[in-house]
Write a protein that binds this DNA or RNA. Structure first.
Lengths: 340, 340
DNA sequence: CTGAAAGCGCTAACAG
DNA sequence: CTGTTAGCGCTTTCAG
């Protein structure tokens, strides 16, 4: 039923059928003014009849522009990235560009394959959340392309940056807990390989030292941004002789797992443990208890990132000139309370 | 810093630089056996030096295969689809294919644009969750391409289908509530435009009539699969003179909004209202209360869909021959209880 | 208004 | 082992 594998019909097929030259067909199809209306209509109709669809490869070869931009994110299951992807798709759409969405899984090799593929298809620009340990080839490729690094910053990459102040975010989260009277505050964070990991850890440590609290390595769990890891990290923390009374969690995905751990142990939050999450997700307002979180302005950041990218492409869209970086905001809910 | 806009170097540039023919360069780069090792190395090195990246458009034109498949989903923010996208990306990856992920937002025009773009770039196959009101052009295009319709079925599309038994799913959910003693059971569902909407509504009605309960139109809210709509739908239901004692919710996104409504009104679930959700999402086990849900085997379905697609492409992967369609499973948690 | 012809980057057949 | 050549589908001069 599906899949008639015969090669797609071309401009020449149309020309042959009509007994005219393929050049005329090309003109007719691209609304060139110097074509008789009658011819144009005829061409249109037979194109439709033959199921003609232009070959973008051929078109690309002629005038070099693909009208595609690439977006590489670590994980579409992370609400933060999927929201970003939606927003960016919307913006590209509006500008008549196609968005090619790729998932790196934070794997440098996968990332490289995607960048390579994007470059081979001659995308005009790339939006990327770099994995932090990008291969040199990846970096070299990106440095030859209009690129915007989104959220994470790779110092080896000479591209524009649109990021939030992650350090401030975890600083705020930690400070909030300290001011509630907590002292044994744990941190679950994403790895240092990415800038965001480094910043989030730094923000936590900054708050701790600012209030003269000892930063204990054993209270820091640095793991991947996946629910399972949040789950096991919190379990380990809670199995300590002196478990923490509060925890800052560096990723919404980890928060999900952590909450599962809490639930399994029958602990009450915030009674037994206060929690503050980095990044605010939809579900955090309906979970039990609703999670206090540090929220980032995803929408604005996406807008800015696309604006910058299309700026680099010469499409000067209106660029709003708010100041970098974007500020996080503490959203108070019920998962953090004064220490008893 | 970024973005040197000079045109990418070609095979000919390499040839010129080395004083050899571009054919030799081509051979060297594609590991043709009849090339002197020395030459091959030389070519490799200069290719690297010049930052050469093959032009996939040109390559495509030569031997017709793009090694890309397309995936069109309605919404990446829906955990169900993002999980599916991840799984499918993984499978394609393994087979050396690139996955081009597109988001239709359930908008027929956007869907058409994507299908058109995919066809223009000569993707070898398409996995699609059809929006239900696809344009005739979309259908025509898809019918000329190896296609697998995933989850939703468009009767006008002659493509293979991989779907769950959605009717059974809501039937099970509704039956569960009926057996708990509920009678005034509401339904919040996605629109009838898609097969899934029709099936989910049918399953609910089937269970109701089977137990001789009246199907009241005013207890059915048919709205888009977005949190806001779940929110307002449930609010309307709860504002009735005789509000339902239980509700079946046809989408995880709607469930999120519904939970928000419940929370705002200070109602207790399942005390004041029992809920069962269609589709099980990560967060449903940590929300308050944990939601009883009908779960679908996403993983297996994705595997099957990709197997079928690559089967159509002639790559005969091992196809497991479980029976269609896939069966839902009721996951009992705490959001549904006997009616007092 | 339309046709002939060149060329985009690449591969493959055919000669050496 | 390598060079020459043709051609994939399309746009774009340049001539009519």
């Amino acid at each position: 039923m599906t899949a008639e594998r015969r090669p797609a019909s071309t401009i020449k097929d149309i020309a042959r059928q009509l007994g005219i030259s393929h050049a005329t067909v090309s003109r007719a199809l691209s609304d060139h003014p110097l074509v008789k209306d009658e011819t144009r209509e005829l061409v249109r109709r037979t194109a439709e009849a033959l199921g003609y669809v232009p070959n973008s490869g051929a078109r690309l070869m002629r005038h070099g522009l693909s009208h595609v931009v690439g977006l590489i994110v670590p994980d579409v299951q992370n609400e933060f990235y999927s929201a970003a992807a939606s927003a960016m798709a919307e913006h590209c759409q509006r500008l008549g560009y196609q968005l090619n969405l790729c998932v790196s899984e934070d794997d440098p090799n996968r990332e490289e394959r995607h960048v390579q593929a994007l470059r081979e298809s001659r995308v005009e620009g790339v939006l990327i959340v770099p994995c932090g340990s990008s291969t040199t080839r990846t970096l070299a490729l990106l440095n030859k392309l209009p690129t915007v690094q989104f959220l994470r910053t790779d110092p080896r990459l000479g591209a524009a940056v649109v990021a939030a102040d992650d350090e401030l975010a975890t600083y705020m989260a930690t400070k909030h807990l300290i001011e509630l009277g907590h002292q044994r505050i744990a941190l679950i964070s994403v790895p240092r390989s990415a800038s965001t990991g480094r910043q989030r850890i730094a923000g936590y440590e900054l708050a701790m030292t600012e209030y003269s609290l000892k930063v204990q390595p054993s209270l820091q769990k640095v793991v991947s941004a996946r629910p399972e890891f949040g789950y096991s990290a919190l379990n380990e923390l809670l199995s300590r002789r002196y478990p923490p009374t509060a925890v800052v969690i560096g990723s919404s995905r980890q928060a999900l797992g952590a909450l599962r751990a809490v639930r399994e142990r029958g602990l009450s939050v915030p009674g037994d443990l206060s929690m503050v999450a980095f990044a605010d997700s939809d579900w955090m307002q309906v979970c039990s208890p609703p999670l206090t979180a540090v929220s980032l302005p995803v929408g604005e950041m996406c807008l800015r990132a696309t604006q910058i990218l299309f700026g680099l492409l010469g499409k000067t869209t209106t660029v709003d000139d708010a100041t970098l970086p974007f500020s996080p905001q503490l959203v108070l809910r019920d998962s953090a309370s004064p220490r008893e």
